[in-house]
Design a protein around this nucleic acid. Sequence first.
DNA 1: TCGTTTTTCTAGAACGATTTAGAAGATCGA
DNA 2: TCGATCTTCTAAATCGTTCTAGAAAAACGA
Lengths: 346, 346
Amino acid sequence: MAPRVTLKTVAQAAGVSPSTVSNAYNKPDQLSAAVRERILATAQELGYAGPDASARALRSGKAGSVGVLFTSQLSYAFSDPYAVGFLAGLAEIAEEFATSLLLMPVSSTDVRSGTNAVRQAAIDTAAIFCVDRGHPALEVLKNRGIPTVSTQRGHDLADGWVAINELDAAAAMGEHLSRLGHRDVVVLVDNHEAIGGRPIELDLDRIDCDDCSLRIQGLRKTMPDAQFRVVSGGHNAFDSGLAAASWVLDSQDRPTAIAGLSDVQALGAIEAMKARGLVPGRDLTVTGFDDIPAAEVAGLTTVRQPIKDKGRAVGRLLLDPGETQRHITLPTELVVRSSSGPAPRN
Amino acid sequence: MAPRVTLKTVAQAAGVSPSTVSNAYNKPDQLSAAVRERILATAQELGYAGPDASARALRSGKAGSVGVLFTSQLSYAFSDPYAVGFLAGLAEIAEEFATSLLLMPVSSTDVRSGTNAVRQAAIDTAAIFCVDRGHPALEVLKNRGIPTVSTQRGHDLADGWVAINELDAAAAMGEHLSRLGHRDVVVLVDNHEAIGGRPIELDLDRIDCDDCSLRIQGLRKTMPDAQFRVVSGGHNAFDSGLAAASWVLDSQDRPTAIAGLSDVQALGAIEAMKARGLVPGRDLTVTGFDDIPAAEVAGLTTVRQPIKDKGRAVGRLLLDPGETQRHITLPTELVVRSSSGPAPRN
DNA sequence: TCGTTTTTCTAGAACGATTTAGAAGATCGA
DNA sequence: TCGATCTTCTAAATCGTTCTAGAAAAACGA
């Protein structure tokens, strides 16, 4: 087998030292244009595709990629346009810094494999997207000395975060619902216990997802008189929302409002209503969270959060050395559309 | 600053050679359990998080990650559940082989930055997802000697492909439409010229997307008497389909059928019809391609392709040394639902 | 008991680049 | 013309592993 073409090979062929070849690629102003051109030409001739990524990473201590950690399977992670928007914003900044994204699903059920992946990944920094506190993968990152930025506030193991004020955002929604006279609310959450099975009702005070419990707290804060039930149909996805809402609608005891903790779930709930000939906003109120593009089309009342900006901000905290902030709170806005209306009097 | 903890540090502290520490992590059966335990304990004590990824990658020649190349921005790439499904299948196999996914958007407009990213990426193999022939990034991969598997047939630079028979799949759809009496069809495609602008009509014989032109050929094959127009509203996305279909529906010359070359675009077209009080399958036929989950909900007639399997197959071709096949053709199936019906007689 | 095999561990050379410090030659100001 | 400064290039060390070959010790078979 032909020996691999390396910097050295090229250097010999071009009659210069390896350092010079390296400079030809990385520091063009450190050598004469003539020599640089000659080097690049011989490189081309020999079929040399440029410095090896691993070697460069080792020597320079920079892998040139940021890890993206998220719970849940990949398939579900990206079924939510919210996640995709985040990734898009992050990718935008990554591209600016000539950095690529290394996807690392760290399941919350099979902790082992994800954690191992994190241990072995060649990354400089990591974005932590909706991974709950206490996941061992976070500890690994800490141990490896990898700077991290989380999408959740006060993630103790993270070096920074970019988030919204979940409590206030949900409180605004609660106030809206309260004004409309709603006193009986079902909250739709994602929950891994419900995955692959029937929808389940969860104990109000024992929600395992950090953001979810904050949002529920927010709702309760401005709806002190209301009765709350928490239901999950599985993953954070349209189908789960559809399943959970169907179950709720077919039960004896319908609420006057269904508050999805994400738009995708809320849209599933709307679908469930339509299938039963019910009109959202008239027969029953449905609200979401995030304001993904489809929410507008569906007329969904929701809380807008600037998701792409969130991705961008995380990217900058991770990659821009000039960025001095460590904690960023992004604004949210209640968006009222047709899916919410006054609670029917009985 | 405290010097970094390395294999060597741990070796010294544990009173063994570096090789042994390495073996403790990588080849547990090469040393006694007692020593291994002692090593792991001291490692823990010193805060050593395991062998450095870059160094390992350099020495062993394995980066432990596969690159995923795709055209178009990340945000659009994942707005299509089809792409997400592919990625999910690929991720499944990647996980099996303890490999991570390195996302690499290679725009077809700004070729430069994407190609550079590919040049520098630490990857062992690459999956090429809907990247058109002739993109320079493919040449870079070839030069670097990186094995690639494409989602398109006969990608000359790729070492393998996993695809469907685009021609036959589209021909089946064409036959269906033909039987229903359709002779005037508008085809919805994605096209970068239309991005950010108004929908445009494209010349039938000059479609730049490989798969698109194959699918159009397939339709024409079984609809020799039909008149075809090709329209694009931009990226492959719901919004583009909505925009393009709206434009078509508001024009003087409505077709009897709109054939989206992807489900997301077709769903956009259905939305456009609904907004105008038209019923899909009765007033106008709409068909898609892919059979994403939402297609069933919407009653969209489409061609099913096993997208997750495609991702899995690509993953196996890339990662499983036991896999001897280089080219895999997956089956497709015409799925007739309510969005297609007989062409109205005039 | 003695050679042979197996187990357990180690020394030292890679892997392919970047970096640091500095040499040689060119350019410059006075 | 001479020392100082710049430009252009190089030698050698280094990054943190894994790998190859082999040594030392233990176990084994007869």
